[in-house]
Design a protein around this nucleic acid. Structure first.
Lengths: 220, 220
DNA sequence: GTCTATATTATGATAGAC
DNA sequence: GTCTATCATAATATAGAC
């Protein structure tokens, strides 16, 4: 397949270095992307390495080579997932730095709903693991969730300073907010079967964001 | 183990009928109860029939005998789960039939939160299956969920008639409500790891019920 | 109905050629 | 780094004694 590279029996390293590495990284990338979808839809046990490899269009042996085992692949998938989340919100917060505090609170709430609609795999992932209390859930909390919760609390502090937040303590508001914002998108297939509504349409996302905002914030 | 029943080599049916049947029903019951916990915690693929049999204290072969296969056991577990839910709410609705409409709406909302806290397995079960769109999810919607959704809509109708409901359409309010009410209990292990709060305490349940009620109903 | 033993399959992981 | 072939294991389902 690859074009002949002349009579040299052992190719020198300078030629061989870049290209294979780039391809290897692409392979790794492709496996992680596919793993995110598989794990979030089927759970850790439900997703098989064979199926992930097949969907990714790579050989099953490569999963072992790049990630050692299924558990490490799962961690790589989670890392990618939260890196995307962090990058997205970091960019937004920078864009909103000039807005006043009350407006920023509303923007964050609405954007979280929008992010949930665009990344239902993130929410499914969290629920797949959060439902039982195994070691993977613990790893997830310690390595990722625990860093995000204080950011959420900071938002609540701002909202309270503006007298716009519903009464309740942080923990209850956190889970009520996350649940209200994300469940419809995490269960989008069920929603469509049950009610006929596809929650992923622009109109539906906007309606849900408006509802969640109204649920959390008191009318002035 | 069983006391000798005399010299009769073939026991007559009248004596043999009741006792073994009662024991068989108890076995069936025990398997279903255990299956509910296992399936809701680990998901369909994660829960193994071996583990369920072991936890239930019965032989693995009995699962096949009573339920034919894993799928049928799962359906039996769902049927039991929703039967409990229906019975519980039917009893409540009867007890509240004399209350005025506005009070009944508040009672239903609060009781749903309380039920969620007392039966986190129900919510975990729904989420385990609702996250992917396989045939089990379809079965669940058609055989159980589709019967409950109109009841929820009836409650919304009452609430709107009393001008106490937040603005939004039925589908969005439904999933926002279910998510806000149940997520904290479905993810109780995660919640405790992340925040230190055990959501299953009486104080916490009451606080969450109050919050969810405030999120759904407008202040008069 | 209950149990023991086993057949069959499918999964995660590995070995080794290229 | 990539691929094929294979091992070891664990799961569902079955067969048949009691």
């Amino acid at each position: 397949m690859t074009p002949a590279r002349g009579p040299a029996s052992k190719p020198d390293d300078s030629q061989r270095k870049r290209r294979p590495q780039a391809r290897a990284l692409a392979t790794r990338d492709q496996i992680v992307s596919t793993a995110i979808v598989c794990f979030s839809n089927l759970g850790f046990e439900g997703a098989t390495t064979r199926w992930i490899a097949e969907q990714a269009g790579v050989n099953q042996g490569l999963i072992t080579h790049h990630f050692k085992n299924k558990e490490e692949l799962w961690k790589a998938a989670v890392d990618r997932l939260f890196a995307n989340f962090r990058n997205d919100f970091a960019a937004r917060m920078e864009a909103w730095q000039d807005a006043d505090r009350a407006t920023r609170v509303r923007l964050i709430i609405r954007h979280f709903v929008r992010y949930a609609s665009e990344h239902p795999e993130q929410l499914r992932f969290m629920m797949q693991e959060g439902l039982n209390s195994g070691p993977r859930m613990q790893w997830l909390v310690e390595n990722h969730l625990s860093a995000h919760y204080p950011q959420f609390q900071a938002m609540l502090r701002d909202a309270r300073a503006e007298n716009m937040l519903i009464e309740g303590d942080d923990v209850h508001i956190f889970y009520a907010f996350v649940g209200a914002a994300s469940t419809i998108f995490a269960l989008s297939a069920e929603c469509e079967h049950l009610t006929g509504l596809d929650p992923a349409t622009e109109k539906s996302i906007e309606a849900h964001a408006k509802l969640v905002e109204a649920m959390l914030l008191v009318t002035p």
